[in-house]
């Protein structure tokens, strides 16, 4: 497997407090990488550095490099909007726009200049099918997305993010606001999506990482403690702290 994202010596400060300390890791293409660790360990912050969503927070300072497709995304001349089209994101709380289901999915393609109705119809259908929610929503495309259940909303958000044909989809605790059945559906969906996309998922749920991820990275207090194949991480972790965390001694 080749690496699509290579992170080297990444540090991040919120004002004067350092939230990420010398993170170096690679993210393999077309696979699922999970970030685990206790609350406040920096896993979500790290995820957001991968498509520069932290740029929006005032007083953030970042050093080190994140190479995507061989290019440092924090280097000069990088178009952040283009970057975010290629590295999309799904958030913790389902956040469909207050528009119809159709307009939610078509929002991204329209932003990138697609105007043809036929083309948009095709993208909307394909994206909803890829997100395994087409059958549930095909008769209510014109209805407001806010009327859907939480699980449906989150799958719609996934459909919306893959509608712009990204390479990488970042998921920030996508199931933490959902019930177990919706969670199972999303996990199933993520497993399907890795055929076409590189998936990076932050989760506070270790079973979720164990079930879904090919590679797991454990974060603690802003440090990347350990990263490896999920099977190996959960059976024979190298670091004592990893073992304590996955066996539930803290977290």
């Amino acid at each position: 497997m080749s690496e699509i994202i290579k992170v080297k010596d990444l540090c991040l400060w919120y004002g004067s407090s350092q939230a990420l300390k010398n993170i170096s890791m690679d993210i393999p293409e077309r696979s699922i990488t999970a970030f685990i660790g206790p609350s406040g360990c920096g896993k979500s912050t790290f995820l957001k550095t991968l498509n520069r969503m932290n740029d929006l927070i005032p007083d953030v300072k970042i050093t080190g490099e994140v190479k995507y497709d061989g290019r440092n995304i924090y280097g000069p001349g990088v178009d952040v909007n283009d970057l975010r089209r290629e590295i999309g994101m799904v958030f913790q709380k389902p956040n469909p726009f207050p528009m119809s289901v159709y307009d939610n999915v078509a929002y991204g393609p329209r932003t990138h200049g697609i105007r043809s109705k036929a083309k948009l119809d095709e993208i909307v259908e394909k994206s909803l099918k890829n997100a395994a929610i087409w059958d549930e929503l095909k008769d209510r495309l014109k209805k407001s997305a806010l009327g859907l259940s939480g699980g449906q909303q989150q799958r719609l958000c996934i459909a919306r993010s893959i509608a712009v044909k990204p390479e990488v989809v970042l998921l920030d605790e996508p199931t933490s606001a959902l019930d177990p059945i919706s969670t199972a559906k999303i996990e199933e969906l993520i497993d399907e999506l890795k055929r076409e996309f590189t998936i990076v998922i932050v989760t506070h749920n270790m079973q979720q990482a164990a079930r879904c991820a090919d590679v797991t990275a454990f974060f603690y207090l802003g440090n990347l403690i350990e990263v490896g194949q999920t099977m190996q991480m959960f059976s024979t972790p190298n670091d004592r702290r990893t073992q304590d965390y996955i066996t539930g001694r803290f977290g």
Partner: peptide, 12 residues
């Protein structure tokens, strides 16, 4: 959250 979603889709 609405704005985050839009930005993460590559909208300026």
């Amino acid at each position: 959250e609405y704005e985050d979603a839009s930005l993460s889709l590559g909208a300026s």
